[in-house]
C-alpha cells in the first residue's frame, strides 16, 4: 500500500530528545490525518520517538528498517 506523504524529514544523527522536538515541529506544519515520513537512528531514537508519538495520540503506520536508520510513517492525530 502506498502512502501519500505530506512532509518528510531526515533526523539521522539527531539525538533524543531533539529528534522528538523536530518531529513535533514538523507535525505542526501538516494537517490532522496527513502523513509525515521521518528518518530516525537505530537505538534510542527508534525505540523512543514512535512510542512518544503514540502516547500523544498520533498513529505510527509503518516502520521500515534501512541500513542503520529507520523510515517511519506517522499519521497526525
Amino acid at each position: 500500500m502506498e502512502f501519500k506523504i505530506e512532509k518528510a524529514i531526515d533526523l539521522e544523527g539527531v539525538v533524543c530528545p531533539l529528534n522528538l522536538v523536530k518531529v513535533k515541529v514538523a507535525l505542526e506544519e501538516i494537517a490532522s490525518g496527513e502523513l509525515l515520513e521521518v528518518i530516525l537512528d537505530e537505538g534510542d531514537a527508534i525505540l523512543n520517538v514512535p512510542r512518544s508519538l503514540k502516547e500523544e495520540g498520533h498513529k505510527v503506520l509503518k516502520v521500515v528498517p534501512l541500513d542503520r536508520t529507520f523510515k517511519v510513517v506517522i499519521e497526525k492525530k
Binding site: P17, L18, L20, V21, K22, K24, V25, E28, S52, E55
Partner: peptide, 23 residues
C-alpha cells in the same frame, strides 16, 4: 518559526504534551 537554537533551548518544554510547539 523557531531557530535550531530555540528548539534546543525550549526542547524540554516542547516535548511536554501539555506544552508542545503551540504552548
Amino acid at each position: 518559526k523557531f531557530t535550531d537554537e530555540q528548539l534546543e533551548r525550549y526542547s524540554r518544554h516542547i516535548i511536554l504534551q501539555n506544552v508542545g510547539v503551540t504552548g
